[in-house]
Simulated scan of single mutants.
Amino acid sequence: MTYQDSLTALADSTRRQIFEHIARAPSAVGPLADQLPVSRPAVSQHLKVLSDAGLLVVEQQGNRRIYAVDTNGLKELRQYLDTLWDDVLGAFADSFEKDD
């Protein structure tokens, strides 16, 4: 997966909410659906998109699937954002040097 896949998956506000819930604590579909204004099947579809984007891992616990954040998927997104941040800081520093 690429950082573009991650950004596309997180562009949807409901998926972002689901991802943020899971970032706080791994969860099954039911508890997530109870906290959100969407149906259980909709939550499952959003979880699939997040998983396909490399942002979540799934662990089978009995008959339940527990979703957790995939740190490897976040690593590529973080590297991309860090590059942007470095560019912004570099431009900011350059603007001060030009003013001197």
Rank of each mutant, 00 (worst) to 15 (best):
T2R: 15
T2G: 14
Y3M: 05
Q4P: 07
D5E: 12
D5M: 14
S6W: 02
T8Q: 07
L10H: 03
A11W: 06
D12W: 03
I18Q: 00
E20C: 03
I22R: 01
R24W: 11
A25D: 07
S27N: 03
A28Q: 08
A28R: 14
V29I: 15
V29N: 03
G30Q: 11
A33Y: 00
D34E: 15
Q35D: 11
Q35W: 03
V38F: 04
S39K: 09
P41N: 06
A42D: 01
A42S: 10
A42G: 01
S44C: 05
S44N: 08
L55K: 03
L55F: 07
L55T: 05
L56P: 00
L56W: 00
V57K: 07
V58E: 02
E59I: 01
E59W: 01
G62Q: 02
N63F: 05
N63W: 04
R64P: 01
R64A: 09
R65I: 04
I66R: 00
A68P: 06
A68F: 05
V69Y: 06
D70W: 04
D70M: 04
N72P: 02
N72Q: 08
N72A: 13
G73S: 02
G73Y: 04
E76Y: 06
R78D: 14
Q79W: 08
Y80M: 07
L81K: 04
L81T: 07
T83C: 09
W85T: 08
W85R: 09
L89D: 14
G90T: 10
G90H: 12
A91T: 12
A91S: 13
F92E: 15
A93W: 12
F96G: 12
F96D: 11
E97P: 02
E97T: 11
K98I: 14
D99K: 11
D100F: 13
D100I: 13
